[in-house]
Design a protein around this nucleic acid. Sequence first.
DNA 1: CTCCAGGGTTTGC
DNA 2: GCAAACCATGGA
Length: 244
Amino acid sequence: MKELSPDSFSFVTKKNRMTMTRLEDESYEVSCSEKEWHDIWHHYFDLDTCYKDIRASIPQADSFLASSAKIGKGIRILNQDKFEMLISFIISQRKSIPAIKTSVERLCSLYGEDGFFPTPDALSKAGFEDLSSCGLGYRVPYIMEASKRVARGDVDLDVLDKLSDEELFNELKSFKGVGDKVANCVALFAYHRVGRAPIDTWIKKIIDTEYKGVDPFSSYGKYAGIMQQYMFYGAQHMKMLTSK
DNA sequence: CTCCAGGGTTTGC
DNA sequence: GCAAACCATGGA
């Protein structure tokens, strides 16, 4: 998503684009039709889930998580496109967030129709040199292999919906360049497996400094992935406060 | 110029 | 099984 102004953001998923603007009375205006809102965006923003209830289940004794959830109370686990997430999170490894954005944007403008995310078919036809020009570095073969497997129908990302969390996790890890962290990110953001908690460098630091090196996520149950998002945001938030 | 990034694979015990 | 080396570039 892109911040157009402090009160206006544009969102993209599959072949849909939408701008949301905050009005003066704290209501919101969206640029799409009512039909598109119901067909696409309502589900995209996971509006049938009550996150307030989920936050209420957080024990007050877990002070870092509790304060993080307070700060990040607007966070929702989006229902994003499977192929978009698979490719984007393969790209994300060992990259900064600004660098990930640049690479994904270049992919979209080079291979995407009308600037949308490229289809598996379009991306599978991309050459090595062209992909390299997107700043993908050593990840180029990963992207080529993944898009070819999906384009050929070797793996049907939609069929994986039926699998259990653990089976899905293992299927995703069968892609080269997909390890534990990326597999859990794709499971969380594309398959809405809200019990999966990706452990990245930020979360590792949090486990180290706030939880004495003991991973708390196994005790968080079916919403562990949502708790992870609160914590990640909490850490980012505190870093922003101390570094600026 | 230097440093390191929302990790994963390969290699060597 | 585990730890360490290695990976290619863009941002800051």
